[in-house]
């Protein structure tokens, strides 16, 4: 069962990381209003995932910290001012594409972990594992679909018209 413990620990860490990254991207791209608002909403999903993983992990004698502090509103003043000051410049459009790509890759990594966890749950007949994976994995896929949609929407202008 050590594999499952490692998996829970790794996924917990990566969901925590993704939650923080969504908030960081929201902060960095405050002048990209849709990205800002939706990224804050999506960070909440990853935070919720860390809570559920922490709950599930107790059965494996794992004490994982739930990431329960909403980071919204704690956006750094410096970050905000920077975002507003650079809002008029074209480079952030390219930075945004890179950030969205990083988010997508991070979410894909989590998606594969959820896949593993669901398989582990089936193989060990652990309903709790299967249940947490069934609940959370669809939201991870939605995070991926969102980053993909935004990249598809924003790339043409950022790459072809910023000259």
């Amino acid at each position: 069962m050590n594999g499952i413990k490692d998996l829970l620990r790794a996924l917990h860490g990566d969901e925590e990381h993704l939650a923080k990254e969504f908030v960081a991207v929201a902060d960095r791209h405050r002048t990209e209003h849709e990205v800002h608002h939706v990224a804050v909403d999506l960070a909440a999903w990853s935070r919720e995932h860390t809570r559920r993983i922490a709950d599930t992990a107790q059965a494996y004698d794992l004490d994982l910290d739930p990431l329960d502090e909403p980071h919204v509103g704690l956006l750094s003043t410096i970050g905000r001012k920077t975002a507003e000051a650079v809002g008029r410049h074209p480079e952030p459009a390219l930075l945004l594409l890179r950030d969205l790509r990083d988010l997508h890759l991070a979410a894909s990594g989590n998606s594969l972990y959820w896949e593993m966890l669901a398989q582990a749950g089936q193989a060990t007949k652990d309903e709790a594992l299967l249940d947490v994976a069934t609940r959370c994995h669809p939201q991870t896929l939605r995070q991926m679909r969102w980053t993909n949609t935004m990249i598809k929407t924003l790339s043409p202008q950022a790459l072809a018209s910023l000259r």
């Binding site: 008029r88 459009a93 929407t153 043409p156």
Partner: peptide
């Protein structure tokens, strides 16, 4: 006929203008 992305909505157009690409 551009159809590689959804037709741009007004709020995004103002963002592109703010950013300098429109």
């Amino acid at each position: 006929i551009p159809h590689y992305a959804p037709p741009t909505h007004a709020m995004q157009m103002f963002r592109y203008a703010e950013q300098g690409s429109i």
